[in-house]
Design a protein around this nucleic acid. Structure first.
Length: 204
DNA sequence: TAGGCCATCTGGTCCT
DNA sequence: AGGACCAGATGGCCTA
């Protein structure tokens, strides 16, 4: 297995499949570093890749099977309308693909770090050995902003700016802020002093 | 075992 | 032209 178990924070230590980089011989044929991908069905050659004959597949390196040829996205031309850039050898194309994969991984890792930062500043009840999912994080953040906005408006004597609806209840636990719950979040030492909002949603 | 969540790959599109 | 962004597809892990 190439990928370690996720720590559920999205920041799992991942062994990049690209580090097991394929070797190419002079004919641009692929060679796996370890030919133990039992379910790998396609061993593409440069010819198949060049011809765009539908088997221009990179070998499965991460243990995850590549999806079949991409279905054309809605409202966009088919993938094979000549948009593929010419002039690149199979080796160059595959190097670019690997570089793109690496950039995409880095991008997703930075996105996950941002999610983790967001989790740290959203007061919530800690689930046992489990952090908030991404959708929970976003929904709680939205509710948090709403509640804080309402609190500000209340202080100004303007009444609630947002009304919470049943849709805001989709994420458990209910959005309630208290010092105890906030403390629940503060289990790490990388805290900076933050204001201590005392907001009880149910009182809104 | 099914479903939820996630990481990764991939190709199309947008942006600089 | 090339990188960023995006969404679809896929398979692994985990939990109820």
């Amino acid at each position: 297995m190439l990928q370690s178990a996720s720590d559920d924070s999205g920041s799992s230590e991942v062994v990049s499949p690209d580090h097991m980089l394929l070797y190419y011989d002079d004919n641009f044929e692929y060679f796996e570093t370890k030919p133990d991908v039992a379910d790998m069905k396609i061993e593409p050659t440069a010819e198949s890749y060049e011809s765009g004959s539908g088997s221009d597949e990179l070998p499965q390196r991460s243990g995850k099977r590549r999806r079949p040829a991409a279905a054309p996205s809605v409202g966009s031309p088919p993938a094979s309308t000549g948009r593929r850039r010419r002039g690149y050898s199979a080796r160059e194309r595959n190097l670019r693909r690997l570089e793109s994969n690496e950039r995409e991984r880095m991008r997703m890792h930075s996105l996950n770090r941002a999610f983790e930062d967001l989790r740290r500043v959203i007061p919530h009840v800690q689930k046992v050995s489990k952090s908030l999912s991404k959708i929970e994080t976003l929904t709680l953040a939205k509710n948090y902003v709403k509640a804080l906005t309402n609190a500000i408006c209340m202080i100004r004597g303007e009444g609630n700016y947002y009304l919470f609806t049943s849709a805001d209840d989709n994420v458990e636990p209910p959005f309630i802020l208290s010092r105890d719950m906030e403390q629940n979040n503060n289990d790490e030492n990388d805290r900076q002093p933050e204001p201590s909002p005392i907001i009880t949603r149910r009182s809104l």
